[in-house]
Amino acid sequence: MSEKATAIAIRIGSIIVLLFLWYFMSIAMADPEILPAPMAIFNAIIRILINPGPEGKSAYFHVGITLGRTFATFGVAMVLGIAIGLAMGLRKVIEHSMLSLIPLMLTMPTILMVFLAVMWFGFNEIGSLVAVVGVVVPYVAVNIFQGAQAMDKSLIDMAKTFRADRNMLIKKVYIPQLLPYIFSAFRFAFGMTWKIVALAETFGIKFGIGYMFFFWFEQFSMEMVLGWIIMFVILMLILEHGVFARLEHAAFKWRPANKLQT
C-alpha cells in the first residue's frame, strides 16, 4: 500500500473505531435519552432532513439562516480584522494601542463574549454580529499584523526604484505577501464564526441551527440534538476542507510544490 493509501485507511479507520466505541457505550449505558446509538442518530438526521420541523420550518430553512449569518458576520469580521492588522503594521500608535487591547479581548472567554453581546445588543442579528466581531477581529488583526511585519523590505525597495505608485505597491507587493496570513486567518476565523453564531442562536436568537439545538434540548430529545449537531459539523467540514482548501490552492499556484492539503 502506498503511503497515501495507508494514511487514508488510518483516517477512515479511526472514525470507524470511534463509531464502534460509541455503539458499545450506548449498549452498556442502555439509556437512549442520554446516549442514543449511532443508528438512532442517523435516523434522526434523516427525519430532520425529510420532515418539516416545529413551526413548519424545514431543516434547509434553519441551515440557510445560520449560513447566512455566518457568511455575513464573517465578511464583516475579516474586513475589519484585515484593516486593523494593516493599520497596526503601518502606524506605531495603532500598533501599541492595539497590542494592549487585543490580549484583553483574546483572553476573554468566548462564551462570555457571546453572552455579553446578546445581552447588550439584543437577541437579533446585531447581537450575533457584535459577538463574532468581538471574538474574531482580534485574532485576524494579530495574524495580519504578523504578516505585515514579515513583509520583505527588499521587494518594496525594488518596487520603489521602478517608481511603482501606492496602488501598484498594495496590489502587487503588499497583498500577495499577506495572502498566506490572510488565508490562515480565514480558515481559523471561519471555524470560530459558525460556532459563535450557533452559540448565539442557542442563547435565543430566532431560528437557525443553534435555535434548533435549544428547541430539542428543551424537548429532552438527545437524538435530535445530536442529529442536528452532527449534521451541521459535517456540512462545515465540507465547506472548510472542500471549498476553502481549493480556493487556497488556486491562490498559491505560483509555489512549485503546491500540493492540495485537505
Partner: peptide, 28 residues
C-alpha cells in the same frame, strides 16, 4: 528612468516572468 539589478533577483514570485516585467513597465 533608473533600472536596478540587485544582488538577489528580487522578483515578485507570485507573478509570472512576463508580469514581473510589466510591473516595471507599468510603474514607469
Amino acid at each position: 528612468r533608473v533600472g536596478y539589478v540587485f544582488q538577489n533577483a528580487r522578483l515578485l514570485n507570485w507573478l509570472t516572468v512576463e508580469d514581473n516585467m510589466t510591473f516595471a513597465l507599468q510603474s514607469q
